[in-house]
């Protein structure tokens, strides 16, 4: 339900994975192919001396400051900031407002997600087939969507539980006077195993 950028998640995994495969293959290649190893031994020292002079940085012997190490540090810091943003952007997208209706003359009607949550939790808590419910709202495609998670008792029919939640939502829609897009998640989960089997719903 959240707005986590899943493409970015997979892209990061893919890029790091590809890099690791290439590096690993290169190491194996250097160990197994004499031609590759020779080529490496020829080219690498020259590259090293070049990098070494760069990495010495602003030592006393140099007249003009060398910006290469500072640049490398800056690139690393930029990478750190980007990755930190990447982590912080996971799992967002929750919203407090479920309905914003400004088509009303002379004002705007706002219904908080908390209202829907209170009403639905109250109604659903009276259902013997359900152990718990959790209601929140998320923005998907800029539209608020109600997320209803219910934990049902062992053996409860998902069809019946789905109908119960659906009709509760219907009542809420009549109360709110508008359609409320919603996603229902029916879970068993840990708590189910510690509750009595559901005998209230006929088999």
């Amino acid at each position: 339900m959240n707005s986590t950028n899943r493409f970015a998640n997979r892209l990061l995994l893919l890029l790091v994975g590809l890099t690791a495969v290439v590096l690993g293959a290169a190491a194996i290649g250097l160990a197994t192919s004499p031609a590759l190893a020779e080529g490496w031994d020829e080219i690498a020292p020259g590259v090293l001396t070049g990098i070494e002079t760069l990495l010495q940085g602003t030592t006393a012997t140099q007249s003009s400051p060398n910006w290469f190490p500072a640049g490398a540090v800056a690139v690393l810091l930029l990478g750190i900031v980007l990755l930190a943003i990447f982590i912080l952007r996971q799992g967002r997208g929750r919203t407090n407002r479920l309905i914003v209706n400004d088509a009303v003359k002379g004002g705007t009607t706002i219904i908080d997600a908390a209202v829907a949550a209170d009403i639905l939790n109250e109604v659903l808590s009276r259902q013997p087939g359900l152990v718990a419910s959790h209601v929140s709202a998320y923005k998907v495609h800029r539209t608020p969507i109600l997320s209803i998670q219910v934990t049902c008792r062992r053996g409860a029919s998902p069809q019946i539980v789905g109908d119960i939640v659906d009709s509760s939502l219907n009542d809420l829609e009549i109360f709110a006077g508008t359609e409320i897009p919603a996603v229902v998640q029916i879970r068993g989960g840990f708590r189910t195993r510690h509750t009595a089997p559901d005998i209230s719903i006929p088999a």
Partner: peptide
Amino acid sequence: GLVIALTGWAFI
């Protein structure tokens, strides 16, 4: 190299 490549493969 094998360890690194296999880890990369798992990520892919």
